[in-house]
């Protein structure tokens, strides 16, 4: 994957580039807003990671200009501002996701990979399939190996989100944001409790588990 990183903190950028390189992504780096904007409009990237506060040109204005030019490359905004309002302005400017500093690399990686997938045209699926597990979005039916599994509405949405991103790591925060639509910070392991319930319904009694816990990162559903 080809990633553009616009970040003025050289140390943080070096760390990020190295970590992204280790998982096989190529990262181009710009240290100020103007250079970042020039690189973004001059080349094709799969995902752009743009810091909000940059020298010479503000991150949000870069995104606004790109969007005005019809560039739909997914953008992850990085920011030290974590207030709900800040998130809303960031997304309104055309950002696709918003991550507050300091962040865990696993969180950033999971979000970047989900964003990159979003831009590919496999969007409007009505049926998700992972191994012998199928989820029909319209009839809200879930089956595994021909057997119907009954899920609560929220469990259905949880599974739907996981299956939409099958093979990708989704973090707990991503689940809370996308399934429950809250950006707050739970102290206890709420998401884990829900996941273990869901696992009990879809994996219990089957030889091969589909729902995997990725240590230090989150969850993944895969055959």
């Amino acid at each position: 994957m080809k990633i553009l990183l616009v970040e003025d903190d050289r140390e943080a950028a070096t760390y990020l580039i190295q970590a992204l390189d280790e998982v096989g992504h190529v990262t181009h780096h710009a240290t100020d807003g103007e250079t970042g904007y020039a690189m973004a409009s001059g080349m094709d990237y799969d995902v752009m990671i743009i810091d909000r506060m940059l020298p010479r040109r503000d991150g949000l204005s870069i995104i606004e200009s790109l969007r005005a030019e019809g560039d739909a490359t997914p953008v992850l905004i990085l920011s030290a501002l974590g207030e709900v309002d800040d998130r809303v302005t960031g997304l309104r400017a055309g950002g696709d996701d918003y991550l507050t500093k300091p962040y865990a690399f696993s969180e950033l990686l999971a979000r970047v990979e989900v964003l990159a997938r979003r831009s590919s045209p496999t969007e409007a699926q009505t049926v998700y399939q992972v191994g012998e597990l199928t989820l029909e979005r319209l009839s809200r039916k879930v089956e595994r190996g021909g057997e119907t599994i009954l899920l609560q509405p929220r469990e259905f949405r949880l599974l739907e989100y996981l299956m939409k991103h099958a093979g990708q790591v989704v973090t707990r925060t991503m689940l809370l944001e996308n399934v429950w639509d809250y950006h707050f910070d739970p102290q206890t392991n709420v998401i884990d409790v829900h996941m273990s319930r869901l696992r009990g319904k879809i994996d219990k009694g089957y030889a091969t588990p589909l729902l995997h816990t990725i240590r230090g990162a989150g969850y993944m559903i895969r055959a």
Partner: peptide, 13 residues
């Protein structure tokens, strides 16, 4: 209701 639903399983545990 949302928050209660989110914490119901935690409370039960």
């Amino acid at each position: 209701e949302d928050v209660a639903e989110l914490y119901q399983p935690v409370a039960e545990d």
